[in-house]
Simulated scan of single mutants.
Amino acid sequence: MDATSRRAARILIMVPAAALMLLGLNSGLLLLGVAMPVVNEPDLHSTLLVFGFVGTLISLERAVALRAAWAYSAPVLLALGSVITITPLPTIIGKVVITAGLVMHLLQYRAIWQRQPMTATAVQAAGAVTGIAAGLAWCGGVPPNRLVPLLAVFLILTIAGERLELARLASPGARAERLLLILSVGLSASALLTLTMPVIAVPVSGILLLAIVVWLLRYDIVRGTIRQHGLPRFVAVCVYLGYGWLLIAGAGWLLGGARTEGPVYDATTHAIFLGFVITMIMAHAPLILPAVLQVDIPYHPALYVPVALLQAALLVRVVAGDAWGITGALQAGGIGAVVAILLFAATAVTVSLRERGKKKSRVAT
């Protein structure tokens, strides 16, 4: 398969992932009571975003890195299973297909480990195991709101492992890496226990999550790149913002305890999935998408606009909406977050097309 065919295949996988992201956002607004033109199952809000969008994107990135045809089965199964859950077919079929995709995702890390054993890979594999547990529990009938700790840890450890890969450039040391691995395995185990003993496991998960954030703040290379300019500073700002939201989430789990609804649940959940995960995706998009889709997304100051809008929207939602109980603020914050995500996508496309036009102009002259 030549480069053009490979790119086309990756785009074919990303198209349903992007559509699932839109449906997931649509479901989130429906849960807030916002009238939407598309009415789908609101309870699938978290699973569509975590498995259908983020999971597909992460596993596609790993498949590209492995350069092995079998590795693409992970993103294909995750996207396909998520699509099935919103069709008239029995939902269990989609759940099983998603879980199969998560198993293939774990096998991706096994293949990466065989090529080069690294602590970062082990941390990400711990996240993948947690994701499989979430898929199995979902197949067993556990509702999505009880799966939140598992879904969160799946993504948190995946991103933490990626940050550790970069931290190795600053040589954190074998002892520091072992500490992160111990904390990660502990967080994965405590997330699993939230299914059976949430009253104990959720606060313990909060403690371990806070410890991981402290580790990342201590060893992440953004401590140095924040003083640079252009893309390195943009990434560093986003990473620090993401860590800030993760601190809020860890405190929420520790102090708020086991909850599956209510203001504390809403605040901690969206601090993780929007404040941390989406901000991190925005940070890494100019680095990841060129490798995955072979498109250039050069740095432009306009990228800060959707990032700032997302942070403002989340503050409105968490402070005025969750803490003060203002329903309008919840809806405004939710709408603002959706607009920020769509604006980031539009901005990335615009700067990419602008760069492509510049290249054509240079070639023509």
Score class of each variant (00 low, 15 high):
S46H: 09
T47S: 12
T47Y: 05
L48T: 09
L48S: 05
L49P: 06
L49R: 07
V50C: 00
G52N: 04
F53G: 06
F53K: 04
F53H: 10
V54K: 02
V54F: 14
T56F: 11
I58E: 00
E61D: 14
E61P: 01
A63F: 02
V64R: 00
V64D: 10
L66P: 02
A68G: 01
A68L: 15
A69N: 13
A69S: 14
A69D: 15
W70H: 08
A71N: 06
Y72V: 12
S73Y: 08
S73I: 13
A74P: 01
P75R: 07
V76L: 14
V76Y: 02
L78N: 05
A79Y: 01
A79F: 09
I84M: 07
I84K: 07
I84S: 05
T85L: 12
T85G: 02
L89S: 09
P90Q: 03
I93Y: 07
I93K: 03
G94T: 12
G94Q: 10
K95T: 06
K95H: 15
I98E: 08
I98L: 06
T99M: 02
V103M: 12
M104I: 12
H105E: 13
Q108A: 04
Y109F: 15
Y109V: 12
R110K: 12
R110F: 13
A111Q: 09
A111Y: 05
I112E: 15
I112D: 06
W113C: 00
R115M: 13
M118Y: 11
M118F: 10
A120E: 02
A120T: 05
T121L: 07
V123E: 06
A125V: 08
A125R: 00
A126Q: 04
G127P: 06
A128F: 05
A128R: 11
V129W: 08
T130C: 12
T130S: 06
G131M: 07
I132T: 01
I132L: 02
A133R: 03
G135W: 05
G135C: 06
L136M: 09
C139I: 13
P143C: 02
N145H: 14
N145T: 13
R146C: 11
R146W: 11
R146I: 08
R146N: 09
R146E: 14
L147Q: 04
P149L: 08
L150G: 07
A152I: 10
A152H: 06
A152E: 13
V153Q: 01
L155W: 00
I156Q: 08
I156P: 08
I156Y: 11
L157P: 03
T158N: 05
